[in-house]
């Protein structure tokens, strides 16, 4: 009897069940989507990427408007042109100014000279002038040793941790 009932159900309520399963799938997808942010494929620092400023120049957040090298965008150690989106009220750099910055942390992995890769927690930038001298006098958090090859020794000496 149970078997007959099951068969009837499957025959009758196919559309209904399919609808149900669809909805459940959708909810599951949404749940994974919430957790997905930390695991998504990280990409280049390109136009409109918002980066944290990790020095005491006065800016808090900048938005990349141009990568000075590379077709796809900037990576760890590259220089970008950015516009200041958030700034401290009495810092050197004001909101809306166009500044240069060196990417000192990138969430996208970058190959190292020995073939291994390095990846950071977030996208962070240190503001520099056109000659490549840092505007601020301190650098917070870890920075990669690849900056030495890019001739940003000043940033390396200011940094507390070198990864």
């Amino acid at each position: 009897m149970a078997a007959s009932f099951a068969s009837r159900c499957s025959r009758v309520g196919r559309s209904l069940f399919s609808g149900l399963s669809n909805s459940s799938l959708g909810s599951a997808h949404e749940m994974t989507h919430n957790n997905y942010f930390s695991q998504q494929q990280r990409t280049f620092i390109q136009m409109r990427t918002v980066l944290k400023v990790v020095d005491n120049s006065g800016a808090k957040k900048v938005m990349c408007i141009q990568a000075l090298k590379g077709k796809k965008g900037a990576r760890l150690g590259d220089t970008i042109v950015a516009s200041v989106k958030e700034a401290h009220p009495n810092g050197k750099v004001k909101k809306g100014k166009v500044v240069y910055g060196v990417v000192v942390r990138a969430a996208m992995q970058k190959g190292r000279c020995d073939g291994s890769e390095v990846r950071f927690d977030d996208n962070a930038v240190v503001l520099v002038d056109k000659q490549g001298q840092p505007i601020g006098t301190r650098v917070f958090g870890p920075v990669p040793h690849e900056l030495r090859r890019k001739k940003h020794v000043k940033i390396l000496t200011l940094a507390g941790h070198i990864a």
Binding site: R105, Q109, D114, G115, S116, E117, V118, R119, F120, D121, D122, G141, P142, P144, G160, H161, A163
Partner: peptide, 17 residues
């Protein structure tokens, strides 16, 4: 063991590798 040139390293913001 991680031999040179292998694998990936993740650097957290508190500089733990």
């Amino acid at each position: 063991t991680v031999y040179p040139g292998h694998g990936i390293q993740f650097v957290r913001n508190d500089a733990k590798i």
